[in-house]
Each structure stands twice: as structure tokens, then as C-alpha cells.
Deep mutational scan, measured.
Amino acid sequence: KCNTATCATQRLANFLVHSSNNFGAILSSTNVGSNTY
């Protein structure tokens, strides 16, 4: 594990990016499902 501020910031940034991608995918699939019905 790294405990430097830079490494922690990069890890946090990566986490936010992945979370945003997952959130966007969920919204996209939900919109497609609602449009189908």
C-alpha cells in the first residue's frame, strides 16, 4: 500500500472514474428499458 498524498489522490480519482462509468451504464440501461416498454 502507498500512503503518499499523490498516490491516494490517484486512487481516489480512479475510483470516481469507475463509479461514474458504472453509474452512466446503469442510467443508459434504465433509459433503454423504459423506452422499450
Results as ranks from 00 to 15, higher is better:
residue 10 Q to V: 13
residue 5 A to K: 06
residue 29 S to M: 09
residue 7 C to R: 00
residue 30 T to R: 03
residue 32 V to R: 03
residue 6 T to I: 06
residue 18 H to K: 00
residue 32 V to M: 07
residue 1 K to F: 11
residue 33 G to A: 08
residue 11 R to I: 15
residue 4 T to H: 14
residue 7 C to F: 05
residue 28 S to I: 10
residue 34 S to L: 07
residue 34 S to A: 11
residue 35 N to E: 06
residue 11 R to A: 07
residue 28 S to T: 09
residue 37 Y to I: 11
residue 36 T to Q: 14
residue 14 N to T: 11
residue 35 N to M: 07
residue 9 T to H: 10
residue 21 N to G: 02
residue 31 N to G: 04
residue 29 S to C: 08
residue 5 A to E: 13
residue 30 T to M: 05
residue 14 N to G: 05
residue 34 S to R: 09
residue 12 L to F: 14
residue 30 T to A: 06
residue 11 R to M: 13
residue 17 V to K: 00
residue 18 H to T: 11
residue 17 V to F: 12
residue 13 A to T: 13
residue 4 T to M: 07
residue 36 T to P: 13
residue 13 A to I: 03
residue 8 A to Y: 06
residue 15 F to I: 15
residue 33 G to L: 06
residue 30 T to W: 01
residue 23 F to W: 05
residue 30 T to D: 00
residue 9 T to S: 11
residue 20 S to V: 09
residue 4 T to Q: 13
residue 19 S to N: 15
residue 16 L to Q: 13
residue 36 T to I: 08
residue 36 T to K: 09
residue 12 L to S: 14
residue 11 R to T: 13
residue 33 G to M: 06
residue 8 A to Q: 15
residue 2 C to L: 03
residue 33 G to R: 08
residue 17 V to D: 02
residue 9 T to W: 01
residue 7 C to V: 02
residue 17 V to N: 00
residue 18 H to N: 10
residue 22 N to D: 00
residue 25 A to Q: 14
residue 11 R to F: 14
residue 9 T to N: 14
residue 34 S to F: 07
residue 28 S to V: 11
residue 13 A to K: 04
residue 8 A to F: 00
residue 7 C to Y: 04
residue 11 R to K: 11
residue 37 Y to A: 09
residue 7 C to P: 00
residue 4 T to E: 13
residue 10 Q to L: 11
residue 16 L to N: 12
residue 24 G to V: 04
residue 29 S to Y: 13
residue 12 L to I: 14
residue 18 H to C: 14
residue 26 I to G: 02
residue 5 A to P: 08
residue 35 N to D: 07
residue 33 G to Y: 15
residue 22 N to F: 01
residue 7 C to H: 05
residue 37 Y to Q: 13
residue 13 A to P: 13
residue 5 A to V: 06
residue 21 N to H: 00
residue 3 N to C: 15
residue 15 F to K: 05
residue 1 K to N: 08
residue 9 T to D: 13
residue 30 T to E: 05
residue 15 F to V: 14
residue 21 N to M: 01
residue 26 I to D: 00
residue 32 V to H: 07
residue 14 N to Q: 11
residue 28 S to Q: 12
residue 2 C to K: 10
residue 37 Y to L: 09
residue 3 N to V: 03
residue 34 S to H: 10
residue 27 L to T: 10
residue 12 L to N: 14
residue 25 A to F: 14
residue 25 A to L: 13
residue 25 A to D: 00
residue 29 S to P: 05
residue 1 K to A: 13
residue 21 N to F: 05
residue 21 N to V: 10
residue 22 N to V: 00
residue 8 A to E: 12
residue 1 K to L: 07
residue 9 T to L: 02
residue 9 T to R: 07
residue 2 C to T: 01
residue 14 N to I: 10
residue 1 K to H: 14
residue 23 F to G: 03
residue 35 N to I: 10
residue 8 A to H: 11
residue 35 N to A: 09
residue 19 S to K: 03
residue 23 F to K: 00
residue 37 Y to D: 07
residue 30 T to G: 05
residue 7 C to E: 00
residue 8 A to R: 10
residue 15 F to C: 06
residue 31 N to M: 04
residue 37 Y to S: 08
